[in-house]
Computed example of a mutant assay.
Amino acid sequence: MSIIDKYILKRYLVTFAVMLLLFVPIGIMANLAEQIGKMIDNDAPTNEIVIYYLNFTIYIGSLLFPIFLFLSIIFFTSKLASNTEIVAILSSGVSYGRFLRPYLIGASIIAATMLVMAMFIVPNASKGYNEFKYKYLKKGKKDRITSNIFNQLNENDFLYVSSFDPARQNANKFTFERFNDDNTLNFKISANSIRWVEKDSMYRLIKYTKRKMVGDSAIIETKNRLDTLFAFKISDLTPVSYIAETKNLYELNKFIKDQRRKGASNINSYVLVKYRRWALPLTAFILTIIAVAVSSVKRRGGMGINLAFGIGVAFIYIFFDKVFGTLAEQAGFSPLLAVIIPNIVFGILAFYLLQHAKR
């Protein structure tokens, strides 16, 4: 690695780190100023607030990683251009592709870091962040669907509840049906309510009725109360809306597989989270190339023009990502295409700007 490579790579990584250290604390202070009243009103313990902001730092930092990366490259490359350092490098016989190499090395380091964090570190932070938010900041607001819940547990087992209270671990108007392989009913269990009894590690059914099919006849069993076991967890009735964000790579793959088997209606939102994680490295490279191509040319107006352009591109990228993400979650659009299309559009833009910058 040459002196120029080390110089540019150092500026790349240091500027990116400084950008994070500057803006993440600002985000924390803004959030604290907005939410401190709710924390006090809901008696949030100090230790939980500290843990929340540790999780907040990781969670928000991961969301803004691509934007910070983009703006930091524009910032320090514009300074190189304004000091005529880039002109000197290219005038010495260094090709533009060779000049770009340390940027791509830096993008590889950042991309690998982003990928590891997204797969294994951010999910745990997301869980703590969202649990605190719904416990103290959005107290009383629902973090999942709690009425008219239908769930397919596997190929043969189905359940339904009219309402579910996750805090009390109970549900009303419970129905559990098991079918044979030929789609005939094996048995059906109904109860006015079902509750998970933590200390006994079992379910308690009130006003229990079981209808067992034997040929063309049915055997009916009724009890006022029955303590029993089921193969599902009470949390399986309806996962929290942010459940996919809280699972690491292996857990998310297994979760998506289980939800596909159950025929979950919102499977696209889970798959979208998976594809967005895998697309992070590609996003890092595309934004790096765009940022270098835009800011490596000395312009009248200097760094301000480049930063304005960078902020505009960042907002357009976020807009594309949100639009296609919403289509995938609510309109049945392919989650894979929802992730690929914005990157293809900005990849074409990166190629065009790079060719223009070379000329």
Rank of each mutant, 00 (worst) to 15 (best):
F16Q: 02
N172H: 09
K257L: 15
I286N: 04
R260Y: 13
V297D: 03
V161S: 01
F65K: 11
I121C: 02
L64P: 08
K262H: 13
V323E: 10
I318W: 04
A279E: 13
T238Y: 04
K358R: 13
F16M: 15
T288G: 06
A284M: 14
A44I: 11
N31T: 05
F187S: 02
P66S: 04
S108E: 04
I316S: 07
M19P: 01
I289S: 07
L21F: 06
I149V: 07
F75C: 08
A279Q: 09
G27Q: 11
A350N: 08
V24K: 09
R144I: 09
F255Y: 12
S296Y: 00
K138E: 05
T57K: 02
F23V: 14
L69C: 12
I234L: 13
D43V: 13
K127Q: 11
F174A: 12
I194T: 12
L349E: 10
P335F: 04
L336D: 07
P166L: 14
N192A: 15
F255R: 14
L337D: 01
R98S: 14
I28N: 14
N172I: 11
G106Q: 15
V345D: 12
K233C: 05
I290Y: 08
K188Q: 14
N172V: 15
P342N: 13
I194D: 02
K79F: 09
I149F: 01
E251I: 09
P335K: 03
P25R: 07
F232K: 13
S265T: 15
A244F: 01
A357Y: 06
S295C: 03
L22P: 00
S126H: 05
S162L: 11
K247Y: 14
T77F: 07
E48S: 04
F333A: 08
L307T: 11
N248Y: 05
I67P: 00
I58N: 01
I105T: 11
P25L: 06
A231R: 05
R178I: 03
I194S: 05
E131D: 04
T326P: 04
F232N: 13
L100C: 00
F319Y: 11
Q355M: 15
K223A: 09
A279N: 05
G128H: 04
D157R: 15
E198F: 07
G347L: 11
P239G: 13
F346V: 07
T146W: 05
T184R: 08
K257G: 10
S190G: 15
Y59G: 08
A191T: 06
L337K: 06
K254R: 10
A30G: 12
F346D: 04
S217G: 10
F187P: 00
G325K: 11
G312I: 06
Y136G: 03
M202K: 10
L287C: 15
I341N: 02
F187Q: 11
L153P: 08
L287H: 03
D143I: 12
N180A: 05
P342G: 01
G263K: 07
A191R: 04
S2W: 14
L64K: 04
